Computed example of a mutant assay.
Amino acid sequence: MSSEDKRVAVKTYVPAYQKKRWREHADQLGMSQSEFLRTMVQAGRRGFDLAEKSEEGGPDTTNPGGNVLESRIHDLLESEGTLDWDELREELAVDLEDRMDEALSALQDRNQVKYSGRDGGYTLTDEGGAR
């Protein structure tokens, strides 16, 4: 194992409700908390990388059609090397699940959406009916 592959601990402090939310999401995805946080950080860094590219050089001229999925696949293959179909699908699914979680959290924070165990899923609240 090279020194770059050696695992080291990282410690941070977050509010208890945030840790609980992350733990629940990790459980839903069948991931450990460490794996979930690594994935979240990497996804966030990709977002920063895209923002930096657009600020520095305007629109991405290598993808004039602006197809986000094509750009994401290109970035994955550039950073990870060769990936098979299942590996690509898994990476893309993590990104989608992260974005869904963020969007649902934002909607819940604004009391527009709630999770209903009785109804078996997410549903609009009275405040969420009108946009």
Rank of each mutant, 00 (worst) to 15 (best):
S3A: 09
D5W: 02
D5M: 01
D5T: 05
R7V: 05
R7T: 14
R7Y: 07
R7M: 09
A9Q: 10
A9D: 12
K11V: 15
K11M: 12
T12D: 12
Y13I: 08
Q18E: 04
K19W: 11
K20T: 15
E24F: 02
H25V: 10
Q28P: 00
G30F: 03
G30K: 02
G30H: 05
M31C: 09
M31K: 12
M31Y: 08
S32C: 09
S32K: 08
S34K: 10
L37V: 06
L37C: 02
L37E: 06
M40A: 13
M40N: 09
R45G: 02
R46I: 13
G47E: 10
G47Q: 13
D49R: 04
L50E: 15
A51G: 11
A51N: 09
K53Q: 15
K53D: 14
S54H: 11
S54V: 15
S54I: 15
E55N: 12
E56S: 11
G57M: 10
G58C: 02
D60T: 05
D60M: 01
T61A: 11
T61F: 06
T62C: 00
G66N: 02
G66Q: 01
N67T: 09
V68E: 13
L69M: 13
L69T: 15
R72Y: 06
R72Q: 03
I73Q: 14
I73N: 07
E78H: 08
G81F: 04
T82F: 11
T82L: 04
L83Y: 11
L83D: 10
D84H: 05
W85D: 15
W85R: 15
W85I: 14
D86Y: 06
L88T: 11
L88S: 12
L88I: 14
R89V: 03
E90D: 14
E91Y: 05
E91F: 04
L92S: 06
A93K: 10
V94K: 09
D95R: 06
D95W: 06
D95S: 07
E97A: 06
E97M: 04
R99G: 12
E102D: 08
E102V: 06
L104I: 13
S105V: 03
A106Y: 14
L107I: 06
D109N: 04
R110D: 09
N111F: 02
Q112M: 06
Q112I: 02
S116H: 09
G117R: 13
R118I: 12
D119T: 15
D119A: 14
D119H: 15
G120N: 09
G121K: 08
Y122I: 00
T123M: 07
E127Y: 06
E127S: 05
G128I: 00
G128C: 01
G128Q: 01
R131L: 11
